[in-house]
Amino acid sequence: MSLKKRVFLALLFAVTGVSAVQAQTCEGNFKVTGVPLLTAMTYKTSYDFPKAKPDQILKTLAQAVAAEGFSGIRVDKSLGAIDAYQETTGSGREQTLRIVARKKGSGTRVDAMFNIQQGQVTSEKVVRKGLCDIVMSATD
């Protein structure tokens, strides 16, 4: 292959890679840490809203948290944070949720983190959908 073709392909892959990073989805940003049953588990995702202001989307995010069945919802406008919990096992052991909307450039980055305690289990698929439903409610 000629040098020109190799350079062109390298540039094409570089541009395609940058576009893929910019076009990430909530589901694509989803990550899980911990060892099921042995340690606490943390489920995280994030999404960047290029033109939204944190204080404008905080109320919408809090409403989405309520719609997902969380209790004890607390909104701290000064921090741009929402804290809530669920207790679904009857054991009294809570699972916690934290959503943070913070300024990023001319827009807002929303981070969502759901934690379950050691010994508890849940479906990764269900958590991913729930977190992304909450995060993406900010686009409505």
Rank of each mutant, 00 (worst) to 15 (best):
R74Q: 15
R128W: 10
R98Y: 01
Q118V: 15
G69F: 10
S91M: 07
R109C: 06
T25V: 11
A62N: 00
E87P: 01
S46A: 14
S71H: 10
T45L: 11
E94Y: 11
V65I: 04
F30M: 07
A112L: 07
Q24C: 02
I73Q: 01
M113N: 13
A84C: 09
V126P: 00
K125D: 15
F114C: 00
G105T: 10
L97M: 03
K103W: 03
L38C: 03
D76H: 08
G92V: 01
Q56N: 14
G28T: 03
G80N: 07
D111L: 12
E87R: 02
K53L: 11
F70M: 06
Q24A: 14
F49D: 07
T42F: 01
R93M: 13
I116T: 04
G34F: 06
G90K: 01
K31V: 12
V127N: 10
A52G: 05
I99F: 08
Q86G: 02
K103E: 13
T33R: 08
S46M: 11
Y85Q: 09
G72Q: 11
C26F: 08
A62W: 02
A112M: 05
A101H: 01
Q63M: 09
V126H: 08
V65C: 09
C26H: 08
A101G: 05
A84G: 08
V121C: 04
L58E: 04
E27W: 06
T60H: 02
K129H: 14
I82D: 00
Q95N: 11
G90E: 06
A112W: 07
Q63S: 14
N115I: 11
I57E: 09
T42R: 14
E87D: 09
V65Y: 05
S106F: 07
Q86F: 06
V110Y: 08
V121R: 13
Q95P: 00
Q117K: 12
S46W: 05
R109E: 15
R128K: 15
L38W: 08
T25A: 07
L37A: 12
G34M: 06
A52L: 09
T60I: 11
K44S: 11
A64H: 05
A81Y: 05
T45F: 02
N115L: 08
A84L: 05
A66I: 05
F49A: 06
S78M: 08
Y43H: 05
